[in-house]
């Protein structure tokens, strides 16, 4: 009994409510004429799309930089990589990994600068990160208009310059991970093996990294910076490394998202990608200074499950589309819940 109580306390009521709600939705689905296999396939697919963006939250949370509201920087690096890969006409796996490779230098550069900046503003990271992200998105909006891309699939036909708002990756690396070893059962169920494997691989790398020398030092910085400094860890350096990794994962995450979604979305599109990632890891049980792989996986699954299931189930019951409102309330409510909880001081 007491175990259950402490478990509930640790896990937090909002998460339990969301979990039960999701279970309820899955149970309800067949009764309102929603195909369960198609829904599960959908949830898995969206889980894969978003998981790496959520994973990108982990390093910065661990190193005490808080929730990465500036993930947009990483996403923009990913967009640069993806557009460059299309510009160079890279196709197939070469295109996909080429995009990641091309994004890497940008991600490292942005992350490095961003990390340096965040080191100067300790304690105010989250608000500042948010506005750095926004202003950078707007800056890149100007850049997308004037950078000298010239692949005709990417630029506005009539003007002859300036990138389109959405660029299809069809013919380049559309669903390259999704279709890799994909298992098709029946008409509606597809298991995106490649996608899930890639996510698992990234999560495993992160797991290993957090247990490495650098990783443990980073965690130490996050849980007790004074102690870490006393034991000879360069706090600022650890924080910068965490920001670079986070930014890089943001870049990888958006490329993985694009190959599954089918389009590269430019201009103001990176903005709305950030909040769901933050909300997902918090739903998964992370706090603003502690996160694990379990949090990532559980959180992404719960949040994306909720986003997939509410429109289909609720809409067929109520005949109206309430999913947007539910999404706003749940995701922001979750972030709010995490922000208002007292930060647990770990050993």
């Amino acid at each position: 009994m007491r175990d259950l109580k402490t478990f509930i306390q640790d896990f937090g009521w909002p998460r339990i409510i969301i979990f039960l709600f999701l279970v309820f939705l899955f149970i309800m689905a067949p009764f309102v004429g929603v195909r369960l296999d198609a829904s599960i396939s959908d949830v898995l697919n969206r889980f894969g799309q978003y998981a790496i963006l959520v994973l990108a939250m982990v390093p910065m949370i661990q190193s005490g930089c808080g929730l990465n509201f500036g993930l947009a920087l990483g996403i923009v690096a990913g967009l640069l990589g993806a557009t460059l890969s299309l510009q160079f006409e890279l196709r197939g796996f070469l295109g996909f990994f080429g995009a990641i490779a091309l994004a890497a230098p940008f991600a490292t550069l942005f992350g490095w600068l961003y990390g340096k900046l965040l080191n100067k503003v300790k304690g105010e990271e989250m608000t500042i990160a948010m506005y750095i992200g926004f202003s950078f998105i707007m800056f890149m909006c100007i850049m997308w208009l004037i950078l000298p891309y010239n692949n005709p699939t990417m630029i506005w036909g009539y003007a002859g310059k300036g990138l389109r708002t959405t660029i299809t990756v069809e013919g380049y690396w559309l669903k390259i991970l999704n279709n890799f070893l994909a298992i098709k059962i029946g008409q509606f169920f597809v298991f995106p093996t490649g996608l899930i494997l890639f996510v698992a691989f990234c999560a495993f790398l992160m797991w290993v990294f957090l247990r490495s020398r650098t990783g443990t030092a980073m965690t130490a910085v996050g849980s007790n910076p004074e102690f870490a400094r006393a034991s000879g860890v360069d706090v600022d350096r650890m924080r910068t490394i965490s920001v670079i990794i986070s930014t890089f994962l943001g870049a990888v995450g958006i490329i993985v998202y694009q190959q599954s979604f089918g389009f590269i979305q430019l201009y103001t599109a990176p903005g709305p990608m950030v909040f769901p990632a933050v909300a997902a890891i918090l739903i998964g049980g992370a706090s603003i200074n502690k996160a694990s792989m379990v949090n990532v996986i559980v959180g992404t699954f719960l949040f994306q499950g909720l986003l997939t299931m509410t429109p289909s189930v609720i809409n067929s019951v109520l005949q109206t589309d309430m999913s947007e409102v539910i999404r706003i309330i749940v995701s922001n409510g979750m972030i709010l819940y995490a922000l208002t909880r007292k930060i647990k001081v770990s050993k």
Partner: peptide
């Protein structure tokens, strides 16, 4: 149109 815009900040 019936649906309101999303409440996210990214699309100012």
């Amino acid at each position: 149109p019936a649906a309101p815009a999303a409440g996210e900040p990214g699309a100012p």
